[in-house]
Design a protein around this nucleic acid. Structure first.
Length: 502
RNA sequence: GCCCCGAUAGUGUAGUGGCCUAUCAUACGGCCCUGUCGAGGCCGUGACCCGGAUUCGAAUUCCGGUCGGGGCGCCA
């Protein structure tokens, strides 16, 4: 079943958009008076007014807002018709909105029209139900609404391309093809509510620490940081590239006097990776800070930032965490710092007698690969460390802008570091090179041509202060924090090796 | 870039040459049911990715194609 099969609907279906509203005759409920004409189709639509055919009131309460005080009152709830349980002489309608679910109980004896209608409405239709709220022990929620009026605002087609609440599995691919339906599932929506909290907490923390929020361009001229493939495209008469990160711009900002900047950045990487941990378009919290003594100043900010994020999610999103089935503890500060040299030693030792094994031991200068990262994660988690910095890397596997440990390229080590969480890299950061001549050497070190970096290098020639920073993958944070099996779960509309739609 | 795997109703699956005019669940349609809450009962509709080959016979084996998933690398 190819995803291509699920293309946008070919054409309108007149039968699904028809407006249906059935009000019970007589009865106790008085529909709230409407400031708007309610005769269907009697007015021309105006962009300034609510839909002329609209109901008097779409909603007076969200499902989870209803409480004892509402007992006996007329209320209107609105949402998607999750389920209809039709009995011979009564019917239960389950309505889901962004806050939870409500049950409407329809008695055939009292409102035969509504009972008949209940059996006809497709699941996942958008409905608005007005009726009397009744506290009841018979209802699982402790209350139910006895409808006087059920409005079908927009009927759903059937069958659904994927079940929202069905007790059958749905492949991630199918879910992503139908993301709007997928996100109707509370456990999926929860991921994005947590994502919102992560971003909110990060922004709040960084602003509080004096970081200025900026936005740099995603469209770049020829220069590339190297290390990854970039997307090339035609920019009028020139060729241009999609930014692999805002790295160079962030650094240029260090020469402006802003001192500290951050950006919620997009990374575009044209790498044909086939993993559950990579995206071709990802989002990052990127920051850069000037006038630092060394990379430890950067790590301190990261510690505080991660603490702020984890704490915010822990304190504000327990409901969503329960839906996702994740526990997010408040981090223990300070985070462990382990040097690269100690890390590979630990990895090699654990590889000899652990469950995970490396083909050959790591030697100084090797990058720490995926399996080695996991081994280290296992070992350090057992020692009580979820978060840990890997510091004092050799220069070789790091990008050109990372500052060598000493004052020149003669150093074996550098001032770059990674922050890992439970065996996966969340971010990499460093003190950057701020001396223009050394930076040129750095560029040459990785086989690039300094003449391709003119604009960037120029900003270093007029008093660039010592600085450092990092880029933190937001999807990585969510994936690791929540234990998601696939990074695509953390993006509404992921772009990967093959997915360009929706 | 290297390597592995998969494609069966709307959805998720069973099926390793004849017992397959293809299993089960869920969805969908119909009927029954006054307290469901994973509602239940009965009935029904609905599928083997495309092309070629082997064979008396192919969902099943082989070849090619298309589409997709994943591991490593790269990285966040």
């Amino acid at each position: 079943m190819g995803r291509r099969k699920i293309a946008p609907p070919a054409g309108p279906r007149s039968t699904i958009s028809r407006f249906r509203s059935v009000a019970a005759r007589g009865g106790g409920g008085v529909a709230p008076s409407s400031p708007y004409p309610s005769t269907p189709g009697s007015l021309k639509p105006s962009p300034l007014l609510p839909p002329p055919r609209g109901p008097p009131v779409i909603r007076t309460r969200y499902a989870s807002e209803v409480n004892e005080a509402d007992d006996g009152t007329t209320q209107t709830i609105a949402g998607w018709l999750q389920d209809v349980r039709l009995m011979g002489n009564l019917a239960f309608l389950v309505i889901r909105d962004r806050t939870g679910i409500a049950q409407a109980t329809v008695l055939k004896k009292k409102v035969p029209e509504l009972h008949e209608l209940a059996g006809q409405i497709q699941r996942e239709s958008a409905v608005s139900i007005t009726g009397t709220v009744q506290m009841s022990d018979k209802a699982k929620l402790g209350w139910e609404i006895l409808p006087d009026n059920i409005q079908v605002l927009n009927e759903s087609e059937a069958p659904l391309p994927m079940g929202v609440v069905d007790r059958v599995g749905v492949d991630l691919d199918t879910r992503l093809d139908n993301r709007f339906l997928d996100v109707r599932r509370p456990e999926v929506a929860a991921i994005f509510k947590i994502r919102h909290e992560v971003i909110h907490a990060a922004g709040e923390y960084l602003r509080d620490k004096g970081f200025l929020e900026i936005h740099t361009s995603c469209i770049n001229a020829a220069s590339s940081e190297g290390g990854t493939e970039v997307y090339k495209f035609q920019y009028f008469e020139k060729e241009a590239f999609l930014a692999q990160s805002p790295q160079l711009y962030k650094q240029m900002m260090m020469a402006t006097g802003f001192d500290r900047v951050f950006e919620f950045a997009r990374y575009f990487r044209a790498e044909k990776h086939n993993t559950t941990r990579h995206l071709n378009e990802s989002t990052a919290i990127d920051f850069e800070m000037a006038w630092i003594q060394n990379e430890e100043d950067v790590m301190k900010v990261i510690e505080g930032l991660m603490n702020a994020i984890w704490t915010a999610v822990h304190e504000k999103r327990q409901e969503e965490l329960a839906l996702v089935g994740a526990e997010v503890p408040i981090p223990k500060l300070p985070f462990l710092r382990i040097t690269y040299t100690d890390a590979i030693e630990k990895i090699n030792k654990a590889s000899l007698n652990g469950d995970r094994k490396l083909d050959k031991p790591l030697e100084f200068g090797d990058d720490i690969g995926t399996e080695a990262e996991r081994i280290l994660g296992d070992v350090l988690m057992k020692e009580g460390h979820d978060f840990y910095f890997i510091t004092k890397w050799p220069l070789a596997p790091k990008p050109f802008y990372v500052h060598p440990e000493g004052k020149d390229m003669g150093s074996k080590l550098c001032r770059g570091f990674d922050l890992d969480y439970r065996g996966v890299e969340l971010l990499s950061g460093a003190q950057r090179i701020h001396e223009p001549e050394l930076l040129k050497e750095g560029i040459k070190r990785v086989g690039l041509d300094p003449t391709d970096f003119e604009g960037y290098l120029t900003s270093f020639r007029y008093g660039m202060p010592p600085h450092g920073g990092c880029g933190i993958g937001i999807e990585r944070i969510l994936m690791q924090m929540l234990g998601l099996p696939n990074i695509r779960e953390a993006v509404l509309f992921p772009r990967d090796r093959t997915r360009l739609y929706p």
